[in-house]
Nucleic acid binder design. Sequence first.
DNA 1: CGGTGTCATGACATCGATGTCATAAGAGGT
DNA 2: ACCTCTTATGACATCGATGTCATGACACCG
Lengths: 363, 363
Amino acid sequence: MATIYDVAKHAGVSPKTVSRVLNKDAPVSAKTREAVAAAMDALGYVPSHAARTMKSSKSGLIGLITGAISNADEISTAAGLPELLIVQGAQKVIERSNKTLLISDTGGRLDRVPDLVRTFQEHRVEGILYVADFHKPLDLTLPGRGIPKVLVNCYDQSGTPAVVPDDEGGQYALTKSVIEKGHRRIAYLTLAKGQEATKLRVAGFRRALGEAGIEFDPALVQATDLFGTPGERQLIWDALDKFFDGDDPPTAICCGNDRLAMAVYSILRGRGIEVPQEVSVVGYDDHRLISETLYPPLTTAELPYSAMGARAAETLLDLLAEGDTAPAEAIRVGGQVKHRGSLVAPRPGHTGNIVDLKGRNEI
Amino acid sequence: MATIYDVAKHAGVSPKTVSRVLNKDAPVSAKTREAVAAAMDALGYVPSHAARTMKSSKSGLIGLITGAISNADEISTAAGLPELLIVQGAQKVIERSNKTLLISDTGGRLDRVPDLVRTFQEHRVEGILYVADFHKPLDLTLPGRGIPKVLVNCYDQSGTPAVVPDDEGGQYALTKSVIEKGHRRIAYLTLAKGQEATKLRVAGFRRALGEAGIEFDPALVQATDLFGTPGERQLIWDALDKFFDGDDPPTAICCGNDRLAMAVYSILRGRGIEVPQEVSVVGYDDHRLISETLYPPLTTAELPYSAMGARAAETLLDLLAEGDTAPAEAIRVGGQVKHRGSLVAPRPGHTGNIVDLKGRNEI
DNA sequence: CGGTGTCATGACATCGATGTCATAAGAGGT
DNA sequence: ACCTCTTATGACATCGATGTCATGACACCG
């Protein structure tokens, strides 16, 4: 590969002059500039990032740790998608700032993180973004003392800057939309218990009910997310059974994510219950492959992953530029409610008890 | 950041000796080695990749160009997923070889590719992987003379090494499975006309029919992929109409991808046609979010993206190691047929004409 | 005991770009 | 005509790691 010396020789000038042409940091006569440009062209010269980094001790690199790539398999099951969208959001911001994103993958193993950070350190990254696959507390302490870091989709105890989704607000807004359509009996098939998102969203759900003066009925709330494993369909079936078995069945069902909503559609149809005519269904995530392909299209709450990634990248760049003291609290990023066809006003006088709930021939 | 000189001073040895400890390329006495290790530890020393690259002119970097990140939005619509899985496969192989993958994103704009390649050149990448979002001929000539390259999911005229999916063989195997179940009237809702995959898969479909002595009926083949845009559902509806309108309706439907199969499920159900009892349905891609969540689970052909990425990375590493002459022909990677519940033997004497096809009240 | 290796170590130059300082050639003011 | 100032350029050192060569200390052999 041609060097600045080759270019200099070819153009009959000194290396330093070539450098000046490259960086436009000092006046160079037009004639010389053209000669140098011609030489660079002729030799196909491209400056060496390594040499620049060495001299300036600024790498222009931002490291990002994720499982997005190795989780790609599970993107099929939607689990890996969030990370990817976060990476996308970060990428857009970073590239606009003229830095380069170095993406490293955990391969799903947390114990590889120190290795990845070390590689980052070798490359002298200026900052690190750590992306989690779903909203959760982070138990590990990231190595890499002195390197500014921002956590995305997770948070820790030590006050590392973090960007997380506004789960409470999202479910609140979505539930409010459901209530505004006229529903009063609203069931909720939540994500797994213990998950951060579950806690926060149930809180948002209750807040919306409370504000509307609707009493919270624990019998209408059930965790049914088994991450797509085989027992899940049965679990949902049983939950729906319970819901529709009472005298006052729900007229709307909130689902912990769009995949659950998809299963609910199919089970309801199998029982001859029409969506949305007899029961409204809403999801969460706005996983468009589902929300737009299902029929009727799914009303759902957007999980603003891309925006979170962008926000995190901006926060990191600010940290780098100004040594800004980052906010002590995690930054919550909210998403929109996506209104589609699966949520309509409840049928007047509808009881929900229209089919024989014991006829499980489709299971 | 501590340097090798700092470590040397701290340990009371010369920098060169520290270097020897780092690289184990010359004998160092145990005592010295320990002293150096202790010094490195105390100072938190991490060697500078830039300095190494400069000295050795080997960057240990492999560049990868993709739209996977920026297409993440469309992963929701399944379009971006392939690239991501390819990246995953490549990543695994590259990391095993102790090199680092530098992932660059086109942001969906082909005209940015030269920029990305230039950035790669600045980083002195040793090779480049170019990943396309779906199987297609590549019209652009990649810049970066002299850098070994491997194309994935695409191919060009200039004999650049390429890795592509075996679309013909995949559809052949899938269709053969359908035929082996006893189906003779098999419809095919293909992807968009003109696409590489469409041509190859229709060829595979016809080969399977031909071998089984089934006449190819053009009336049963229709392109219905509109990439999830609004008119698509109508288009599929019309196609199904046509299929089931004749006296000899199909007993099985092949779909160009899993998303189409998902729409087909929903439309058939809306018409009261049971899957798979009355009509078997198969997809293509094995997009597990769909194929495993649909009920019944979808029989489909795996599109081996991850394997393609891995294969491409191996090919590139071989090229680097041995200056191997790459195969002149594109490498075709085959996938498996995934047998699930949506494909069963046809009902004896079934005509397919069991519902009023004009009752389109669900559209 | 001197010759010949081997082991352990260090001095120095080098990779490619750029910051610092020096210098030569004009431009402009008095 | 002389001094100062700007413009345009180059020489040289430097960033951090490592390849090359040199050297001192032993060990072993005859």
